[in-house]
Write a protein that binds this DNA or RNA. Structure first.
Lengths: 353, 353
DNA sequence: CTGAAAGCGCTTACAG
DNA sequence: CTGAAAGCGCTTACAG
């Protein structure tokens, strides 16, 4: 593979001059510029990014460590992050933690070893050793979706509290009184927050959230299945199951189906995080939709701000309820409707004609 | 950040010796090893992978350029690739082409600039300039899922022909005679092959595949919607729509629903590529499942073989039909059943309890 | 077993 | 505007 020396030789100039034209340095003669360009073309030369990074101490690369790529929410987040990063001239390397702190640390370490310019993380828990070390290491960092209390890093996330209130209003209006939640890991901000938002919203209606109705999940399908089975075996099973993410909702559907029960007739189901498939499930699933694209964009901007020496601030965007039929009532037809919810219950994003 | 010199100073040894213990070189005294280890520990030293790569001319990194990350098939492929790569001591950088040749070339170029050790590609088409150049460039390369005819690179993919025959047998047995397909891009091997397999299978039953029943899609949901609308407006609409991937099946469901029609009563639907959600759609969707995990693993192994100087061979794995209810018949209950298909029509993978 | 030195492919003050 | 030279942080023959 041709190197900068070959180009210099071909152009009859020094490597310094070649480097200057390659980097758009102003003080280069028009003639030199032409000869270098021709030589580059002739040799099919491409600068070695590794050498350049070593010299300049920047890789123009962002690391993104997410809890689970297979979760459509994170897939979309990753996509949005890459798009915005590319627009700003950065590449991104994704590390999939699979909800495992050890794997997360593995990726963080690898990324740091590669000297990425900044790190975007949706932490698996409240602070694995590697994560904490990274935060201290001084590499610019931003949390997305989940964050670690006590670590001084900007957070880009969405606030689901008002959407959860809307959901509970919807459920209460349908006559449901025994509501259960499949939570995410307790060591996770989103795991705790969603339970707390749900509890608070229930409280406003004088409804309790007994421990038996809080199932400990881990944001993966299998846990949704397991927890739902537990709920169904209760002497007084809940009338509604609210899954704190879409994968656990998938698991819940599996469990309900395995029992030969029907949604919403036998039990209602709602989920945090909306996905296109929820329009076509049986029945269509009522869900809380986050503004994923915007979150990804905002996270990248905050991170790049930090990298380039600007402040880089936290962002919180609201989530919103999307009413469908899984809680007992056909979605209202027409532009408005729904129960006590001041937004049209129309499906989200590209999921519906 | 501490460098190797700092470690050497701390340990009272030369950087050469430090490097040797870091790389597990045999001829190092036990004493030196201990002192270096202690110094590394004390300083929290981590080798700079950029410098190491420049020197050794290897990055221990694989590039994976896939056509569309948002497609669950590719998401799972990516995950499997990363797992196997990690097991073999490699990292992977994913580039999402979004079915756009220009974006694909952008990623290929970026990856090559970073001097990745090998490239795994599912090409968007039959050869964009960047892709062809990469194949010529000499970087070890392997195609996954899709490939480019005429380019001499190992191919790891799955053969859907027998599964498509099973599908047509199933459809024919249900009395369907007018079968249509939403194809992938014609510039794509999987785009062409699936149509050809379908046509051949229909031929065995004396059924034609008229041009009007071949809709040109691009593997994305929107095209599935558009093509299906076209089918539904035909004077004689098809009785079955076979979507060549899961996203176009999603689009087809959207279009059918928008028309107020029902699956399978008004029109049957089948899809290539199975996903967990197909178990819970209304109705559950009959699909052809590829052994994705195995494909990812095999692709990485073939690539690493090439990188490390071993042959590295092509692999073709069979796909299989998973019968559900979207074509007109309830899935048979019990361990066996189905029509003329010698495999149990049980749902796939982790999607069912 | 250990160290001094060269060199990987670039960029960038420093002179001219 | 241009070039010679130093140096980014490592690894690895080459001597000893």
């Amino acid at each position: 593979m041709a190197g900068i020396k070959d180009v210099a030789a071909e152009a009859g100039l020094s490597v310094a001059t070649v480097s200057r034209v390659l980097n758009g340095h102003p003080s280069v003669s028009e003639d030199a510029r032409r000869r270098v360009t021709a030589a580059v073309e002739a040799l099919g030369y491409r600068p070695n990014a590794v050498a350049r990074s070593l010299r300049t101490d920047q890789t123009r690369t962002l690391g993104l460590v997410i809890s689970d790529v297979m979760n459509p929410y994170f897939t979309e987040l990753a996509r949005s992050v890459e798009e915005e990063a590319r627009a700003l001239g950065y590449s991104v390397i994704i590390g999939n933690a699979d909800e495992r702190p050890d794997l997360q640390d593995h990726h963080v370490t690898t990324l740091l070893d590669r000297r990425i310019d900044g790190l975007l993380v949706s932490p698996t828990d409240d602070g694995s050793p590697g994560m904490l070390a990274a935060a201290r290491a001084g590499t610019p960092m931003v949390f997305v979706d989940r964050w670690i209390p006590g670590v001084d890093v900007p957070v880009v996330r969405s606030d689901g509290r008002s959407a959860v209130r809307d959901l509970v209003a919807h459920l209460h209006g349908l006559g449901h009184r025994r509501l259960a939640i499949i939570s995410g890991p307790a060591a996770t901000t989103t795991g705790r927050e969603r339970v707390e938002a749900f509890r608070a919203a229930l409280g406003a209606y004088g409804l309790p959230l007994p421990d038996a109705y809080i199932g400990q999940g881990d944001f993966q399908a299998e846990s949704g299945r397991r927890v739902t089975e537990g709920f169904l075996e209760l002497d007084e099973p809940p009338q509604v199951v609210f899954a704190a993410d879409n994968l656990m909702a998938l698991g819940a559907l599996d469990a309900i189906r395995a029992r030969g029960l029907r949604v919403p007739d036998d039990i209602a189901l709602a989920a945090f995080d909306d996905i296109p498939w929820f329009v076509h499930t049986d029945p269509p699933v009522t869900a809380i939709a986050q503004p994923v694209r915007e979150l990804g964009r905002a996270a990248v901007r905050a991170l790049v701000d930090r990298i380039e020496g600007r402040p880089g601030s936290s962002v919180t965007l609201p989530a919103r309820l999307v009413v469908r039929r899984s809680c007992g009532e056909p979605a209202a037809v027409g532009p408005s409707g729904g129960r006590g919810i001041d937004r049209p219950p129309s499906p989200v994003r590209r999921s519906t004609p």
